[in-house]
Design a protein around this nucleic acid. Structure first.
Lengths: 336, 336
DNA sequence: TTGTAAGCGTTATCAA
DNA sequence: TTGATAACGCTTACAA
């Protein structure tokens, strides 16, 4: 089933069918209708490969996700979903590449095989060779998160430094004098993962500024890790009365540890941070937190489309600083 | 950067470059090396569209996921991850289509635009028009889950009926006389979603067989729904001492409700069911449950590859019946 | 208003 | 062992 077959049945040339479909040339109403009838009958649709070959574009966006072996966090999953949805809205397909930091066959296939018109990269590190590779090739791309050298590239990100800083200030305003940051995993921090790094710097800055004590803890993205992390914290730093976190996956474990220790939130301990709304609302009591906006995926797609249509425009950045939603996990520091 | 450019620089014809790459024709070691050097230098890779056009295959698998608006469950996410990973292992890319039940542009593009060599369909219903559509076109496909008429199609699934039945028998063996099934949402059940339907039939069959009382409850895929569902259950059916569920997202809410009601598991109430291992292990105490095998995505890819290479072979099915892992949430029925 | 034909980058057949 | 060439299905410049 190809355009020639449609043309034959409609008694016109192939170009007429093509023009009838694209509307790039006037086609008499009569023939247009005849062609459409044949197309509807046979359910014809142009072969994507032929079209891509001729047009030099694939109508496909590439999305580079963390390797499947690592369980994706809810936040990452939310990005994937919103990217796919935003792309579908403008009739673009999404090709997935599960690629970690090192060279990866699927990643290379995607970019040097010209399988996509542009790439969205998620979970990037401060130094990320995939970004370098993409810059070499000249393929338009947008990152979710940004590298250490962010000016030349196009990205969307959450302003973790500012948000975590605000969380600390919020706790300080409530009288807390010793607070802890429950960060992502030690490996992630060590590998230079942006959000973890910036959360830490915002935390340090704010605690310094307010002259309060800050404890930094790394914690794997799992409930059980959250639990042991919290147990260790209460053991080693019993004077901490406020927790700030960007590790949503640890929340259920944090909750469990507090419950078992009969700690009442927020009477005995305040908790806040930056997490997906879903996690904040599922916490008991509901978590006061800055809700990571899921539209970031949508924004990334928009930025990428801009970049594809005008590759020479200066790269744009979008830094989200969502408000902290006051729910129910922060309160005055307990009096001793 | 195309094959002609490589040929020119290596001083050979385009066909020689093609053969050097594919190995389908003998090429002298000398020229092969020269060609390879040029390729390595320029980072050449065949244009995917041109190759697809010529070969008639895209080296891409389509994966149809539920529309992004609905939050994917962890189980669904696990499938996506394992499909993508399995495909990457055999150098195939994965194109995503977020499509619900009705006709969907991205779905149609994928199948009638010949964008993929085969399709994996997830979250299918007992009557599913996407399956009909796929059968019309003759494009190879595999479903995760199966339709009411499963013989003509290729699928992998979990044997919910048997597993839920086993859970009920397990509870009955422990002396429970009134048990409840916490199913997926009412809409899902009403729309003929297979797992929900089969869980119910397995439940009914087993309760009938053991002569015990079964209560059926629908519950949305959310913690809060799980909580209210459990509160309602304890209110309306206080004599129920055993819970069986396939709704993993409801587990945190179930846990919360029990905790607030000071119900001790498994002393006062036993819980079991079919959920992803991760959820079972995160429950407190760890949940006795049949763990949904995440390799299902891998198996789906394998089945699909078979189907692509030998489309006329009789369709194969894989029905998983994983063992129930005894953890800590089931015990003898409480004595009155 | 419509048709003819070139060409996108490959692979594979046929010749040498 | 290698090269010339047709063909895959489409879009579009050029002709009519």
């Amino acid at each position: 089933m190809n355009i020639g077959e449609i043309a034959r049945r409609a008694g016109v040339s192939r170009s007429t069918v093509s023009y009838a479909l694209s509307g790039k040339r006037a086609v008499s109403e009569e023939t247009r209708r005849r062609i459409q009838a044949v197309i509807d009958e046979l359910g014809y649709r142009p072969n994507a490969a032929a079209r891509a070959l001729k047009e030099g574009r694939t109508r496909t966006l590439g999305l580079v996700i963390p390797p499947a072996s690592l369980r994706l966090t809810d936040m990452q999953l939310g990005f994937v979903a919103s990217v796919v949805e935003a792309a579908a809205r403008v009739d673009l397909d999404v090709l997935l590449s599960p690629s970690g930091g090192d060279h990866d066959r699927s990643f290379e296939r995607m970019i040097s095989g010209r399988r996509v018109d542009g790439v969205i990269l998620m979970e990037i590190r401060l130094e990320d060779e995939r970004v370098d590779r993409l810059q070499q090739t000249g393929l338009p791309f947008v990152t979710i998160g940004h590298t250490a050298n962010p000016h030349g590239t196009c990205w969307v990100d959450v302003d973790y430094a500012t948000l975590i800083s605000r969380c600390v200030h919020h706790l300080a305003d409530l009288g807390h004098r010793q607070v802890a940051l429950v960060n992502r995993s030690a490996e992630l921090v060590a590998s230079g993962y942006g959000p973890a790094q910036r959360a830490l710097s915002g935390f340090t800055e704010a605690t310094d500024q307010r002259g309060i004590t800050g404890v930094h803890l790394c914690c794997a993205d799992e409930a059980s890790a959250g639990q042991s992390c919290m147990e260790r914290l209460r053991d080693e730093h019993p004077a901490v009365t406020g927790i700030v976190t960007i590790n949503e996956a640890a929340l259920p474990g944090i909750h469990r540890a507090l419950e078992q220790a009969r700690v009442v939130v927020p009477r005995d301990l305040s908790i806040t941070g930056v997490v997906a709304r879903h996690w904040a609302e599922d916490f008991r009591p509901p978590l006061t937190a800055a809700d990571v906006p899921m539209e970031m995926g949508t924004q990334a797609v928009e930025l990428l489309l801009e970049r594809i249509s005008t590759p020479d425009a200066p790269p744009r950045h979008l830094l989200f600083t969502p408000p902290i939603s006051l729910r129910a996990t922060t309160g005055p520091a307990p009096v001793r």
